[in-house]
Amino acid sequence: MVEQGGGARGPERRRQDIADIVLSAGSVSAAGLAERFGVSLMTIHRDLDELARQGVVRKHRGGVTAQPSGVFESSVAYRMKSMRPAKDAIAARAAEMVEPGMAVMLDDSTTALALARRLAGVAPLTVVTNFLQAVNLLSAERDIRLMALGGDYDPLHDSFLGVSCVDAIEALNVDLCFVSTSAVSGGFAFHQEQRIVSVKRAMLGAAARSVLLIDHSKLSRVALHRVAPLSAFDRVIVDDGAGADALRGLDEHKVAYELATA
């Protein structure tokens, strides 16, 4: 619980506390934050403008949210807190597909990061990724040959993107590629941001087999850009929290999917 009187604690500390609240709650009102911290609504809006500039939160009329929309992706800080049991279950199933000696590519999704945590038990491996958190995690593993994809660093996703990242991917050929997307609907995988889409598409093209890792909260949702048809993936792994209607949609499009038990 954040105590009132936040105005006396300095703007940096207050903004960090605000970020923690929004990331935990998902969405809050600006008026509620002003009352909670004992500062003016104008001060709160300045704080929220700065947090939005940093990509931590997204402002909307009357408040702020860390949740994704059809055109905005959540920050990696929010995604790290979201759907953890489901992502762990998906990662456990995905790890069963990895064999020693393989070259594996991981995208910058937090579900792929959950898989990265399990790869030391399958080594020796070559792992290729553009996700800085995965690079930091795997750099300490002696039996994993780590290839970090460069490019333009993006703090919102904590990953490297852009033309140089795509060029680096297209020069490679891996056994397995694991990616996630923000939404799945109508036989397609979607994402909000074009720069992310180009990297994911390049990853699919560089892999002998591709696997889509998707927690049930992303089913029956649409985002701005199509990444690929679900038929482009050799396997789709979704957690068992998926509802009957969402799974029926996968069945109707003849998607090869597996349910991971959370």
Score class of each variant (00 low, 15 high):
residue 139 S to L: 14
residue 169 I to N: 04
residue 191 H to E: 07
residue 260 A to K: 02
residue 207 A to T: 12
residue 40 S to T: 07
residue 92 A to Q: 09
residue 26 G to Y: 10
residue 237 I to Q: 05
residue 88 D to Y: 06
residue 142 R to E: 15
residue 123 A to K: 10
residue 200 K to R: 09
residue 25 A to L: 14
residue 199 V to Q: 05
residue 157 H to K: 13
residue 74 S to C: 06
residue 120 A to Q: 10
residue 235 R to K: 06
residue 259 L to A: 12
residue 221 R to L: 07
residue 129 T to C: 12
residue 85 P to C: 05
residue 164 S to D: 09
residue 160 F to Y: 15
residue 34 A to C: 01
residue 17 D to R: 14
residue 183 A to R: 01
residue 198 S to W: 14
residue 201 R to T: 07
residue 189 A to H: 08
residue 252 E to M: 11
residue 159 S to L: 09
residue 7 G to C: 00
residue 186 G to Q: 06
residue 19 A to V: 06
residue 180 S to V: 04
residue 191 H to Y: 07
residue 177 C to R: 00
residue 106 L to M: 08
residue 174 V to E: 02
residue 19 A to S: 15
residue 243 G to A: 14
residue 109 S to D: 05
residue 194 Q to M: 14
residue 115 L to N: 12
residue 37 F to K: 01
residue 71 V to A: 05
residue 29 S to C: 03
residue 249 G to Y: 04
residue 234 D to T: 00
residue 213 L to G: 11
residue 119 L to C: 02
residue 48 L to T: 04
residue 69 S to R: 05
residue 109 S to T: 12
residue 181 T to A: 08
residue 229 P to V: 04
residue 185 S to G: 07
residue 247 L to S: 11
residue 60 H to F: 13
residue 249 G to N: 14
residue 118 R to M: 09
residue 110 T to G: 11
residue 168 A to Y: 03
residue 141 E to W: 12
residue 183 A to T: 03
residue 102 M to H: 11
residue 149 L to C: 02
residue 156 L to I: 13
residue 169 I to S: 08
residue 85 P to A: 03
residue 61 R to V: 09
residue 94 A to L: 04
residue 256 A to V: 14
residue 96 E to G: 14
residue 95 A to C: 03
residue 132 L to G: 12
residue 208 A to F: 02
residue 212 L to A: 01
residue 73 E to F: 10
residue 117 R to Q: 08
residue 213 L to Q: 03
residue 179 V to G: 01
residue 46 R to V: 04
residue 5 G to R: 00
residue 188 F to L: 11
residue 226 R to K: 10
residue 212 L to R: 00
residue 212 L to D: 09
residue 39 V to Y: 00
residue 258 E to A: 15
residue 46 R to S: 05
residue 114 A to H: 04
residue 47 D to W: 00
residue 241 G to R: 11
residue 208 A to L: 06
residue 110 T to V: 15
residue 204 L to G: 01
residue 83 M to R: 13
residue 233 F to Y: 10
residue 239 D to T: 08
residue 83 M to I: 03
residue 29 S to D: 02
residue 128 V to H: 07
residue 233 F to S: 00
residue 168 A to W: 03
residue 164 S to H: 03
residue 21 I to T: 04
residue 126 T to G: 13
residue 214 I to M: 10
residue 123 A to N: 05
